[in-house]
Design a binder for these strands. Structure first.
Length: 487
RNA sequence: GCCCCCAUCGUCUAGAGGCCUAGGACAACACCCUUUCACGGUGUAGACAGCGAUUCGAAUUCGCUUGGGGGUACCA
């Protein structure tokens, strides 16, 4: 069997989108599963929308997700260059071949003429298909047009190719994920393969690149289905081997529209900034359209690769639910080692003066606050009361907890009894236990007792384990805060 | 408008004619655990879009309808 070669070909007109990441993942998985090669190609034909920043973002995001490519702009490979803008000199050759074999022709129509054709079509409620009026221009006519200063675009002759290689106008192909797909090519219209300025168009350039890079399987979003027919015809006209195609359903926002910024993060780097783990993101995105055979949903990419079968991918669109991603993220955070977690949390702790804590205290603080983290960024709010001499008391905490008589009583008693307490967790655990017992006898629930202390010390009604919190803060800060809370 | 694709709980999905009174995960709700929140545990609720056809038998096959998505560029 021939070598499996797949590719991801993002166009750097924005940061790497999660949709592209998923397509990249499925390509990557397919390559892994079949011992093939995964190629990265940058499609920067549209120079105006391209920027180096986006290219870097694509590289970094793909790497962060663990989707390493075997061939690409940075690592090279036998079929380079892997950046489209550096390949411009190879496209005209095949245009010429197409021209010579009659599968393409020069088109001198102006944008205005084309516009008029389209208007005419819509006026008559007819589907627009290019009129082909330049198909049979004589050499004299062409020379005359050229003399007028017109520069021709090159169009691909759909009908000619279709007739040459197929029985009817219906073109069929067997899609790796959707099964047999078909289209009446009479409805396609002769499309431009080379613009009048000499630049190749997308549909043409992809074919040339994929052909030259020996891509065996093209796995991409279903928004490319209609392009596929055009591309197949180009391969055939060129006498090249047609690769296998597989089209994935799209990822939609919860409102079923296209996933866009207004729904939240869309670029991989946005998710990372918000505190998502790339491990969680890639795992989650794999589950959009694919299900593990053993039902184990939490699974690293290499394990997914073992289980992956392209024909088992769902052919329908799927909605990007942030809820499940969050659940998965919290799961991955729980699996992180302390060392790794601390490292990853650091960027979200920049606003604090970490020198207030010893290494030991810092570690303990993370240990007792990591449990409820859904996003890495949640740590910022979770540890706020560990820093500074005083704390901000939430208004509700003030009125509902601290202002009560019971709380005041508890706090005064705490100051009194805790005078000679040693602030180690072990000791505090014991002392607090008897302290709760002291109030329990007076008819005050342990819960209420603890709430008063928590409210005074942290300003909140919820938070990390109280014993640990007090120990980390130390006697000095605790007493200061309790005194401040007493009226 | 025309063409193409898709259709199982709110969401992601399992399901290839009898194993389906449709299974799992997230979310929701309830209870348990607990010095709080959370974690965890145990439960509850929740779907085959509709209509026809094929068949002894259909979520699974076929047709139509409806709904959703995509395409229709000298954008990629």
């Amino acid at each position: 069997m021939e070598e499996v070669r797949v590719r991801i070909a993002p166009s750097p007109s924005g940061n790497l989108h999660v949709g592209t990441a998923r397509t990249a993942l499925f390509n990557f998985l397919f390559a892994k599963k079949n011992n093939g090669k995964f190629v990265l190609r940058i499609e920067d034909t549209d120079a105006e929308r391209t920027s180096q920043e986006y290219i870097d973002n694509i590289f970094d995001s793909l790497k962060a997700l663990g989707l390493n490519w075997d061939e690409g702009p940075d690592v090279g490979g036998p079929f380079g260059p892997y950046t489209q803008s550096e390949r411009f000199d190879i496209y005209p050759k095949y245009v010429q071949q197409l021209l010579d074999s009659g599968f393409a022709y020069e088109c001198f129509c102006t944008p205005e003429e084309l516009e008029a054709e389209k208007e005419e079509a819509t006026r008559n409620k007819k589907p627009y298909v290019y009129s082909k009026k330049c198909e049979n221009l004589t050499e004299e006519e062409k020379a005359k047009l050229r003399a007028e200063g017109r520069k021709p675009a090159i169009r691909f002759n759909i009908a000619k190719a279709q007739k040459a290689f197929h029985d009817s106008s219906i073109l069929k192909f067997d899609d790796l994920v959707k099964g047999e797909l078909h289209m009446d090519t009479d409805l396609l219209g002769d499309f431009v393969i080379q613009k009048s300025n000499g630049a190749p168009t997308y549909n043409y350039a992809v074919v040339i690149d994929d052909m030259l890079m020996k891509i065996s399987h093209v796995i991409r979003g279903e928004d490319h289905i209609s392009n596929t027919y055009k591309q197949i015809l180009i391969y055939e006209a060129l006498g090249a081997e047609v690769p296998k195609f597989g089209h994935l359903g799209m990822i939609l926002a919860p409102d079923r529209s296209k996933l866009s910024k207004r729904h939240g993060a869309t670029a991989v780097s946005d998710f990372v900034k918000e505190g998502y783990l790339t491990e969680a993101l890639i795992n989650f995105v794999a589950l959009l359209g694919w299900a593990p055979s053993d039902g184990e949903e939490i699974k690293p990419v290499d394990k997914i690769a073992e289980d992956f079968r392209i024909n088992e991918i769902s052919s329908s669109n799927s909605i990007f639910e942030y809820d499940k991603l969050k659940w998965m993220n919290s799961h991955y955070i729980k699996m992180l080692s302390m060392e790794e977690l601390k490292k990853r949390l650091l960027p979200y702790l920049e606003k604090y003066n970490l020198s207030e804590l010893t290494d030991e205290q810092f570690t303990r603080m993370i240990e007792v606050t990591r449990e409820p983290l859904i996003l890495l960024s949640d740590i910022t709010d979770a540890v706020t009361y560990f820093f500074g001499e005083t704390v901000d008391i939430e208004p509700e905490v003030q009125t509902e907890v601290l202002d009560t008589e019971t709380s005041q009583e508890v706090l005064k008693e705490y100051l009194e009894q805790s005078k000679d307490w040693e602030y180690t967790e072990e000791n505090l655990h014991e002392k607090l236990d008897t302290f709760r017992g002291f109030f329990k006898e007076k008819g005050i629930k342990p819960k209420v007792t603890m709430w008063a202390i928590r409210a005074a010390v942290t300003g909140k009604t919820r938070g990390a384990d109280m014993t640990a919190t007090l120990a980390i803060l130390g006697k000095d800060k605790v007493e200061k805060r309790i005194k401040a809370a007493i009226k």
